[in-house]
Write a protein that binds this DNA or RNA. Structure first.
Lengths: 111, 111
DNA sequence: TTAAAGAGTGGTTATTTTACCAAATAACAT
DNA sequence: ATGTTATTTGGTAAAATAACCACTCTTTAA
């Protein structure tokens, strides 16, 4: 069976998937997603541990939301964020495996 | 138990993980990774289906390699790429679930 | 009703990313 | 030796990203 170039439909799906991965591909946003694996958090709780302007944090959350990774809910003065599809963080062990492999290889090079 | 801000070690790990996700967070690179899930491919086989300059393709592969996602091997005139940690593509069903959720919600909005 | 706290927006700037072209390198065939 | 194919590298321009500041909006508290 010969391989095919991706058609328009497939290309759209790939783009959407890449967009999700890209959203998680920033240290601050990945950290946020990991925090949310333990349950919802308001912006102020997340901000407590992030050394960045509040507006920056807000924009990172907007990126995660736009990608469909999180959803938000306003309760009183606070806005709570939570993961929409929790499996998204269950992947991370494999991502870590990638890193461990790289580290092991570098160590092997050093003897 | 009170949550803690990430220390230097944790921050380095998060950065490394984010870097892997970022590498996969581009349509062309994600497509390449998916192709490699079926086994190694040389650059020319991948290029066959990608509408971009050869140099562009080469640079995308370099990004994946630098992130530790793929490794390469030169055999004759060709360079073959393969996944280093195959589980990296097993995640994608969850990524798709994120997208499906978004689509379903949008559909629900339309009634 | 006024002030303060939590969060988001708009604007700006520096940095990064991506794509293309041209040129270089490596291996093979003639 | 020379050309040809496969791939990478360097340069550059355009576009996207990420950070900060100043400001706005909303909700609660005084």
């Amino acid at each position: 069976m010969k391989r095919q170039p991706p058609n328009a439909r497939e290309r759209a799906l790939i783009e959407a998937k890449a967009n999700v991965l890209k959203a998680l591909g920033h240290p601050t946003r990945l950290w946020m997603a990991e925090q949310l694996a333990d349950g919802e958090r308001c912006v102020c709780e997340l901000a407590e541990f992030i050394d960045a302007d509040f507006s920056t944090i807000s924009k990172h959350l907007a990126v995660l939301k736009q990608a469909g990774v999180v959803e938000d809910e306003k309760r009183g003065k606070q806005v709570y964020y939570r993961l929409k599809v929790p499996c998204i963080v269950q992947y991370l062990p494999c991502v870590e495996a990638v890193i461990e492999t790289s580290i092991r290889e570098r160590a092997a090079l050093l003897g």
